[in-house]
Amino acid sequence: MTALAAAASQTSTGEAVQFWVLGIVAVIGALSTVLMKKAVHSALSLAGTMIVLAVFYLANGAYFLGIVQIVVYTGAIMMLFLFVVMLVGVTAADSLKETLKGQRWLAAGCGLGFGVLLIAGIGNASLNSFNGLGTANAEHGGNVEGLASLIFTKYVFAFEITGALLITATVGAMVLTHRERTERAKNQREMSEERVRGKQLPPLPAPGVYARHNAVDIPGLLPDGTPSELTVMQTLRKRGQIRDVSNESLEQLKALEQRSEERLGRDNEEEEVAK
């Protein structure tokens, strides 16, 4: 690939096939990142697009960047996104209220125009031949060695400044998410006294466990059939995420009983006919 590929104009057929198959996957992933309603689905689509891009980096001869893309982007950054989605709430959907009238359509139109301009610009540039990375990679004995020799000579100041940037970002994130404690924390003695002198002396009852549901957001039922809020944990209670299935399951039970009665009745009739 070193001498032959110099100033070539076509890649191998295998790469072309790979490009068209994975390129479609990447575009679909990008579109679903924008169009999916839930943030989790967006994050997963974006992770897929990033993995496809990593494959493209590898195909383009950027072996180091391909691996870094998978490790840093899909491994670290997307997981960070998923953590924040979990913190902020999976159920937080987009508000559909328009504060500016017709803003979405205008934005979509602007995006379309921008894309047309960008692609037309690339189409007008004369980019028919390419050199390939064979000689550049071979110069220092490989892609990673070549990158290292550039980073630690020509770009060494940029590299140092990047280190300063990362430290600043870390400190910034710690400062931003730090919360000052406004009231004194309860000590163990106060907590135990509160526990013993409070209303509920024994442990709190467990959440409802039916034959079909054993999730923690389902309240247990009291003897009269009403759900008890005490059985669901405080966080879910405050968020209003209690799932009440008592009526639903009572109806299902009723339907089941009715069906079994019909079945039994039919069987009895058949037996009588047989006699």
């Binding site: 104009s9 076509q10 890649t11 790469e15 072309a16 490009f19 390129g23 990447a26 575009v27 990008a30 579109l31 990142t33 924008v34 697009t49 493209f56 383009n60 987009d94 803003q103 979405r104 934005a107 979509a108 602007c110 995006g111 379309l112 921008f114 894309g115 960008l118 692609i119 690339i122 980019l127 028919n128 390419f130």
Partner: peptide
Amino acid sequence: MNPVYYLYLAALLFTIGAAGVLIR
């Protein structure tokens, strides 16, 4: 295939991202 198609793909992805920033 010419590597210029990678540039077209990059332009398309950038456009989708930009539209997403404005829309979402």
